[in-house]
Nucleic acid binder design. Sequence first.
DNA 1: CGCTGTAACTTGCGCATTGCAAGTAACAAG
DNA 2: CTTGTTACTTGCAATGCGCAAGTTACAGCG
Lengths: 142, 142
Amino acid sequence: MIFEGGFEPRREPAEHASANAMAIMKDEPRSGCPIAATLDIVGDRWTLVILRDLFIGKKRYSDFLASPERITTNILASRLDRIARAGLASRKAYQTRSRRYEYELTDKGRDLLPILQAMSRWGNKHYPETFTPPASFMKARR
Amino acid sequence: MIFEGGFEPRREPAEHASANAMAIMKDEPRSGCPIAATLDIVGDRWTLVILRDLFIGKKRYSDFLASPERITTNILASRLDRIARAGLASRKAYQTRSRRYEYELTDKGRDLLPILQAMSRWGNKHYPETFTPPASFMKARR
DNA sequence: CGCTGTAACTTGCGCATTGCAAGTAACAAG
DNA sequence: CTTGTTACTTGCAATGCGCAAGTTACAGCG
């Protein structure tokens, strides 16, 4: 019992329109908690994996597709769209009259690095069979 | 382009049985990446919210139910079961011949704190309308 | 001991999402 | 102009989510 009290705002019972309808990528947060707000953006199995790939330098759709987790094409397309719309990465056309884009982290996206680093530490500690990320990744600040 | 190379293990194409069938709470990880392994455990919108509540001292089903996000009962029951089975919290009966339990963080669960802290920082920075957690939470080490 | 309230779920259903596999569209290269 | 490549979209079956109602087991009270 470490952090009793002081963590959640007072919220009148009458106010709790269903938070669940306020889902990922919806405008209205399900609470005023920064953790919940973050999870509304990145709380699924794939978004932070794609962000990881952006951190290690991947840019194109086929780069993400080739990652060892083998994401499927419809989920990748859907997630890249959400990531761009959430401002975590920008889309840059790379052909002349393009419908092909490269993705690049924004400042908002780069600020997710401590989360990825913390997950790496937790994952390595509790699942020792996972690989150890490069020291440069673990030490980076952005 | 920060961490080129060195992040993912070599994985032969023939090896990529669909990682997607190896979902949350399944035995087989979808890759050797510690981030992906962590997300296989906590990569949904509710698990880390419940872990947050455990950190702030909540123990019982009705405690979690009363959180501002208004999780629904079937999802809560399902997540508490997964959290216990993943070893992130222990179940303790609190009645004599019980079918009622309190939940308490394990060491494995407590080690998730840096992830919650990092999410809090990110959420506060990019969603200023979210509340600021108590300094004790942000400074705690476990 | 019986009744009632409470807490902790389970159930059924409709809707949404996931993921597989196949298909489509647009661009560049030859 | 044709072909290969890349980046998706589509349809469908399976699974998960979430609403609302219902069930179960325990404690407390008279």
